[in-house]
Nucleic acid binder design. Structure first.
Lengths: 188, 188
DNA sequence: TTAATTCCGCTACCGCCGTTGCGGAAATGC
DNA sequence: GCATTTCCGCAACGGCGGTAGCGGAATTAA
């Protein structure tokens, strides 16, 4: 399986991502320099650029590791699944510095490949939640005139908008209010 | 009214914002350099930095001029006002390159002052729409269990999310579906 | 006219992102 | 052992954002 030449140092990737993480937490995206990340990882800067084409994609790779750890196993109960879905996104957004989320969004809009990556991370969850909403509509738990996929846009969009534009906090109360506004009061 | 010393060249501001606009349209945010803007405006780079503290705020000033031109005069009819509100945002987002919107969002998240500026641009409209929604709820046109301000988050957020993250188009059909999903079918 | 004041253009500089080229290190195939 | 191939570290560089300092230009006050 090994190629012809010198094999890649297996530890480099993890060391760099780790260093990027600590530098990010300590200084934020703008003040984090690739040179310092390289130094902290004990690696030449060029080695970093050989694996990730830009600072944004390096950080993107770091984030992918983080967000892929957010659990999500749908139960079939719309209210429960919706709450978990929204809370999961809120938690993921909370685990990452706000400025970084903003930069990722910017990177996603600028670099199609990054955008595709971010979307793929959540595509399956979106599909599950869309189905949960459709089921809730069919069961008469909520108005049936809205497109489930658009409701997903609205749920996720509200979180991003609040975090990035209005700057207001995304606390459990907000998450609850969001789901409550979508599904309405509990029906026994 | 004139101060003691040499007065500010009145034409500089307009020339710089104009140059920034054309450079932005031609090259996008990243490839637009302040040096070139200065050259095109016939102005020293330092003069630009004396008026705007950063590239982001320079572009922000440019955008403020643009978006402040989007008209909005509420009629009192919820469906009409909601449609105009959403369509107005969609139009504003459409008039600006997507990458620029993303960078502005990033700048808003990073630089509180920029965020305050953007929010102030829309604060009054948000208030009007919130009241329109509250009125619609009171009149029984839509479910009353949702917080109007959160509905505004969801409407605006869906637009941003679609534009910046999913990359899907914001066409009149989507705007219509968004309002329809919020207010439900027309009631004669 | 002269001094004080404010603005402007110019040059130089720093730090950072990202690239290029080169020599050496670590593996494989003969 | 030896050539080949791939990876790595190193040094240098260009371009950009942003800053500092200086000399001169334009204005007001005396």
């Amino acid at each position: 399986m090994a190629g012809r030449g010198r094999p890649r140092d297996a530890g480099v990737e993890a060391r760099v991502l780790d260093a990027a993480m600590t530098e990010m937490r300590a200084r934020g995206y703008d003040e984090m320099s690739v040179d310092r990340v390289a130094e902290r990882a004990g690696v030449a800067k060029t080695t970093i650029y050989r694996r990730w084409p830009s600072k944004a994609e390096l950080v993107m790779a770091m984030i992918t590791e983080l967000t892929s750890a957010v659990p999500f196993d749908p139960s079939g109960d719309p209210r429960r699944d919706l709450s978990e879905f929204v809370a999961g996104i809120a938690a993921a957004l909370d685990a990452i510095p706000t400025t970084l989320v903003a930069d990722l969004v910017a990177a996603a809009a600028r670099e199609p490949r990054v955008g595709v990556g971010v979307r793929a991370l959540w595509a399956d969850r979106h599909a599950v939640v869309s189905e949960a909403i459709a089921r809730a509509q069919a069961d008469g738990l909520m108005p049936a005139y809205a497109d489930p996929r658009i409701i997903v846009d609205q749920l996720v969009g509200a979180l991003y908008y609040r975090l990035l534009v209005t700057g207001e906090p995304i606390d459990p109360a907000y998450v609850r209010a969001l789901v409550f506004g979508t599904l309405g009061p509990e029906q026994s």
